[in-house]
Structures are given as C-alpha cells and as structure tokens.
Computed example of a mutant assay.
Amino acid sequence: MRPPAAVVEDYLKTIYSHTEWQPDDITPSQLASRLDLAPSTVTEMVKKLAAAKLVSHKRYGSISLTAEGRAQAIAVVRRHRLIETWLVTEMSYTWDAVHDEAEVLEHAISDRLLDAIDARLGQPAHDPHGDPIPDAAGRTAREEFVLLANAAAGHVGTVLRISDRDPELLRDLERCAVNVGSRLRVDAQHPLTVSADAETVTLPDEAGASIWVTA
C-alpha cells in the first residue's frame, strides 16, 4: 500500500496537470480515469481533500485546487519534472522511459537533494517533454500555445510540449523526427500531416491531441 502522503500528492498533481494546457477544471470521472481508480475510491478521497481544504468541490461538480492545494501540487510537479530531466541528462534515460521512474522518486527524495539536482542541471525551465518546471518559488513561464489538433492547415509553430502519457507515441514521434523544439507546418488534419525540416510526415492519429505548438 502506498503511503497516504504519496496518495495525496498524486491526486493534487493530477488535478493541477489537467488545467495546465487547457482551461476546464477536472471532473471526478476524469480524475478517476487519469488515476486508473474506481469512481467510488476517488469520490471518498476528494471528500478528504476538501475537508483538508486542499480542493474545492461541490457534489456532481468539477474539482479545483485551493491556494494551499495548488502550492502543494506545484511542489510535487517541480520534483517530478526535475527528476525526469535529471534522468535524461545525467542517467542516459530516454524521454519515453522516465515518467514511471519519476512517479516513484518524486515521493522519496529530500528537498536538499532536489535543490542539488536543480543546481547541477543549471535550473532548467522545461522537462524533456516541454512541460515547464516551476522554480523554487513556484513560478513558471510559458508561451501562448495551441493544441496541434486545433491548428488550421498552414499554421506554423514550434513544438512546446508533447504529452508523456503514451510512451509508444513518444517513440513513434521520435521516428518521425518530431520532438520538443521542432518547427512544424500543418499541411492537413485528416490524416494529420506536417512538414518538419523539409520532410513531410503523417503523424499517428493520437498525436494531434498530444502535441502543443506555439500559437
């Protein structure tokens, strides 16, 4: 059984991450799906988080973080993304293999070690997937963005972020030479076809909902 503190951190991080790249608060069913838990389990935990004043939630409504919940979530997100960056930069992990490792280590390392990793890496602003790494004060910076699936044909943008939820998709995109920082032109949406570095490639169907580019 996972320690209670780790379970709380997982919930807060998931709620926070849901609204980073789109505006709508997470619903209980979405939260259950993201955590791969039964809806009844999530309902009980959300009640506990609300009682602890970490989230705001009305029955049958969406879930949002309170100021305290957001502060705790950002601290977990910072640990997770710094660990991912450290594993890729220092430990020769590939970008499709770091998420699960970071899920474990984020609950275990001390603040002292985290600060040492941050200093060692030169205080990076983004993790290997393009997600912003909060600084020690919890601040992040991000350019205006559009989801690739919503970009019109002819749109030109730089890849800001690629979701790390599907390792196989990350490997497919790497084979297509599409990565964070790639410059893309959308040629068509159905199928999703882009031009990158003078090469035209058709991306997997799920790529449109997993890639964010500059607006």
Rank of each mutant, 00 (worst) to 15 (best):
A102R: 00
A6C: 10
V46K: 09
G154A: 13
T41S: 15
Q30A: 05
P3K: 14
D24M: 14
A75T: 08
P191H: 12
L192W: 07
L114R: 02
D118V: 12
A177Y: 13
E84C: 14
A141F: 08
G61D: 15
R79E: 01
L87H: 04
D111V: 04
S182R: 06
V55F: 04
A5K: 13
A97K: 01
A108V: 14
D197H: 10
P28K: 01
A151C: 07
T89M: 08
A198C: 07
V46Q: 09
A209K: 02
W21T: 02
R120D: 14
A153W: 03
H107E: 01
A198H: 15
P134M: 00
E144R: 06
R78I: 03
A152S: 14
L65M: 10
N179W: 03
P4I: 12
V8C: 11
S40I: 08
R79P: 06
R112K: 10
A149N: 07
A5H: 15
M91H: 04
P191G: 11
D131T: 02
V159H: 05
D25R: 11
V88T: 08
E68C: 01
T214A: 10
I162E: 06
G154P: 13
V213K: 02
E143M: 14
L160W: 01
Q72W: 03
I211S: 02
C176W: 08
D10R: 14
A149T: 01
V104N: 10
E143K: 13
D24I: 11
A38E: 10
L113F: 08
A67N: 12
L54D: 08
A75D: 10
S56E: 15
V42T: 11
T19A: 12
D187Y: 00
T43P: 01
G130K: 12
K53A: 15
V156C: 08
D127S: 12
P132S: 02
A73C: 05
D24R: 15
I74E: 08
I74V: 15
C176Q: 12
L192Y: 10
A196T: 15
